[in-house]
């Protein structure tokens, strides 16, 4: 029993060694093509990584602006109305936070802003400031919706918000998301196509060899594995190099931007690039695996299908 197990283990080891050696042979035999695919994979994965970082930074900038974007509703009949409006707002899905401001709090705030001229407020006599509700929205594009809701409420006297800014931010945010999605799809399609074609050329170059292997009793998986590993190796190497270049170029670019445009909210944490690198390598494995498997299995199916 243990002898059988031992034999199976030796056999598996022999197959594993053969697959590794054959993968290396594939990479070395079509060296020019391998290098070309590697360079393309680096470029494509770099582009994917860069576009992801661009989107994340744009979103961080937008989020920075959005965090200071409020819709202010002034109510008609004092604090009772203020609490009613606040309650209705808290029930809304798109609202991040609701703050109530009593006339007294509004006066204190005004005094604080006036600083040394705060005494001028006493000239007003009784506090003329109305109670209000300050609503922070989850996204800039929700500001208009919230403002409309507030205007429609009978308790609300007036609504103040930066409507145009909110609209613009909303549009920029959705445009950047769509653009990044398009770039991502194009990059993945390009990487897939290049890898698929490289493996297909490798398969074609070894057409006779594969047919002979299948005729002498090699299983389809055994024949396919070196090609799949070739694709995975090229995908992973491309993603690794792209991640390395991305790490250093992002650090350089972000330092330059922070230096020249300090008011921008940018992501300075370079660990993000490392995490992105892991995702890219995972992408390299997946794309390499799928494309090479498709390329080689199509050929093997045709070769093993009896006529």
């Amino acid at each position: 029993m243990s002898g059988t197990k031992g034999k199976a283990g030796t056999r598996r080891m022999a197959i594993f060694r053969y697959i590794l050696r054959d993968t290396w042979r594939l990479l070395a035999r079509n060296l020019g093509l391998s290098v070309l695919t590697f360079v393309t994979a680096v470029a494509v994965f770099y582009l994917v990584g860069a576009s992801v970082l661009f989107v994340m930074n744009t979103r961080a900038m937008i989020a920075g602006v959005e965090s200071n974007l409020f819709v202010q509703a002034y109510v008609k009949d004092g604090e009772e109305s203020m609490r009613t409006v606040a309650g209705k707002m808290q029930a809304m899905e798109c609202v991040a936070s609701v703050e109530t401001i009593t006339p007294q709090q509004a006066l204190e705030s005004l005094k604080a802003r006036l600083g040394s001229q705060a005494d001028a407020v006493t000239l007003l006599g009784d506090n003329p400031l109305p109670a209000s509700v300050q609503v922070q929205v989850k996204k800039a594009e929700f500001a208009t919706v919230v403002a409309r809701e507030l205007i429609a409420m009978p308790e609300v006297d007036d609504v103040v918000y930066s409507g145009e800014l909110a609209d613009r931010l909303g549009k920029i945010s959705s445009f950047v998301s769509r653009l990044s999605m398009v770039i991502l799809v194009i990059c993945i399609a390009a990487a897939s196509l290049v890898l698929f074609n490289t493996i297909r050329i490798s398969v074609y170059a070894r057409k006779d060899e594969i047919e002979t292997m299948l005729l002498v009793g090699a299983t389809p998986a055994f024949v396919a594995f070196p090609f799949v590993l070739q694709g995975v190796t090229l995908g992973v190497l491309g993603a690794l190099f792209a991640s390395g270049i991305l790490y250093f170029s992002y650090g350089y670019a972000i330092n330059a931007l922070i230096h020249s445009l300090p008011f921008l909210t940018l992501i300075k944490d370079r660990e993000l690039v490392l995490r992105l690198g892991i995702v890219l390598v995972g992408g390299g494995v997946t794309i390499g695996w799928i494309c090479s498997w498709l390329a080689v299995s199509k050929f093997i199916r045709a070769a093993t299908r009896p006529q």
Binding site: A14, I15, R17, Y18, T212, M213, V216, G217, A218, F222
Partner: peptide, 13 residues
Amino acid sequence: FVQEAIGMPKNLV
């Protein structure tokens, strides 16, 4: 290679 293709150990090959 035809022996390796069926997983024969190196020494036997």
